[in-house]
Simulated scan of single mutants.
Amino acid sequence: MAQRSRMQLLSLLLVVGSFQVEVIAACGGEEMANYRLEFQGLWSERTFPKSFPKYRKNAQWSTLIGVSHNDQYSMWEPGRSASVPFKDFAEGEDPSGKGLQIEMVNLPNGFVFAAKSLSTGTGRSVTTVFVHRDHSKISLAVGLIPSPDWFVGISGLDLCEGGSWRKDPLQLDLQPWDAGTDGGFSFTSPDYVSNPQEPITQITAQYPNHPANSFFYPKLEALPPIARVTLVWQQAGNEDSSWMGKLVPGLGKAGRRDSNEDIQMPGDSPENVSPGIDLPTEPEIVIPYDCEVTPWGSWSPCDTLCKVGLRRRFRLIIQRPKNGGQDCPDLITVEACQAKLTKPQKKCSKARIKKETKKYMKIQRRNYMGKKKRNRFIA
């Protein structure tokens, strides 16, 4: 009996020993790694011309909030409902992500990171990301301002791949996501609370399939990236953890908060972060945006010009063309009310219709294109 117990104990020690070797060998035997993370906003009027927010609340980005974690935690996930802290963040009620930070700093051995907000749709911000072999995944989110509840981000990206840390520069193009808590279609939509709350879904050029959707470009197969994240592995010893104290006072290396102080806005800046690798800059993608017009209105009563009854109908411009998009079609149709015309009547009415159409289009194009360009678009 004693011999059997000794054999069981020996087997157990062998199993534990092999498990320990496996853990130590994880990620090439390196327990920790740190990465330089750069967020680049690509939200411009040339790339996303439809309903581009230029006034009052112009296009801008919220604070970038992120965390390193394991499979036991999910900051956000496609197809699932957003948590209350994430809902507040995505809807702009908590653009600094204070609620999310409180939720994440209680993770054992997880590391919270952040990068400053951007006051325009284009620009860059940087920070440092720390990962542990037991918490090798990262998630992050950046809110679009203004928007109902739209954001870009990364969910559960594992930086330990194939038993070692990813050391080649990693560049990820980001697309917009809908947090599912607000039902607005455009950047500046009023608050329409989604009841019941919908799951987090990706916004595409065809979805939501609604003409009021600010990202609805039915002629495109896919939207161009609205933002980009670059991750560059750094040699051990290059990290600068001073940003962590600026983000959360009392936060230790284990990612815990040791005091009851309020969380502060991150104060990171490029000089606080080790220099990264300059990756090739891709040319800006420009989306031509064609002119949009209303349906034709009803016909006017007939008049008696040229001793021929003429009638007219009109349509209006909804959106002028941008970025070399197709020019607006005719906004007026003039035709004879009578079915049969004599030769003099045909000649007179044809000249009159051409002259009236040209004059009306000249006025309308001057209104939507400006005086400097009007001569180029005279019919």
Results as ranks from 00 to 15, higher is better:
V286E: 13
G276T: 01
P280S: 10
Y289A: 11
D290Q: 05
L305T: 13
R311C: 00
R311Y: 01
D278K: 08
T304R: 09
L305M: 12
I285S: 09
P288N: 11
G309V: 08
L279K: 13
G309S: 14
S300W: 07
D290V: 01
V308E: 01
I285T: 14
P288Q: 11
V293F: 04
D290N: 12
V286P: 04
P283F: 12
Y289F: 15
D278C: 01
T304A: 05
T294G: 05
P280Y: 06
E292K: 11
W299F: 08
P280V: 06
G297L: 08
Y289R: 15
I285Y: 05
K307R: 14
D278N: 08
G276I: 03
E282V: 08
G297D: 06
P280G: 05
R311K: 13
I277G: 02
I285A: 12
P295T: 02
P295I: 03
P295V: 10
K307L: 08
L305Y: 08
L279I: 13
C306S: 03
I287Y: 13
V308I: 10
G309F: 12
E282L: 14
G276E: 03
P288L: 06
E284N: 12
I287S: 13
W296N: 06
V293I: 12
G309H: 09
T281M: 06
E292Y: 02
S300M: 06
D290G: 10
W296R: 01
P280T: 04
D290M: 01
G276L: 00
L310A: 04
I287Q: 14
I277D: 09
L310F: 10
D278E: 15
C291Y: 00
T294P: 10
E292V: 04
W296Q: 03
P295W: 04
E284I: 15
P301S: 14
P288C: 07
S300T: 15
E292W: 02
T304E: 12
C306A: 07
C291D: 06
E282H: 01
I285V: 15
I277A: 06
S298M: 09
D303L: 10
V286C: 08
T304S: 09
S300D: 02
D290C: 08
P288E: 04
G297P: 07
T281Y: 00
T281P: 00
V286M: 07
L310T: 10
S300Q: 02
P283T: 11
G309L: 11
E292G: 01
V293H: 01
L279F: 09
E284A: 14
K307G: 02
D290E: 10
P301G: 11
P295L: 06
G309Y: 10
I287F: 12
E284F: 12
C306E: 13
E292P: 00
D290A: 15
P295K: 05
P301N: 13
I285K: 10
I277K: 13
R311E: 03
E284M: 15
D303K: 07
L305E: 15
E284V: 15
W299C: 07
K307Q: 11
T294A: 04
C302E: 04
T281I: 07
L310D: 05
T281Q: 12
I285W: 03
I277M: 07
I287W: 08
S298V: 11
I285P: 00
Y289K: 14
P295C: 00
P283I: 08
P295N: 08
W296A: 03
W296M: 07
D303R: 09
S298W: 03
P288I: 13
Y289G: 05
P288S: 05
P295F: 03
G309I: 11
E284L: 15
W299I: 08
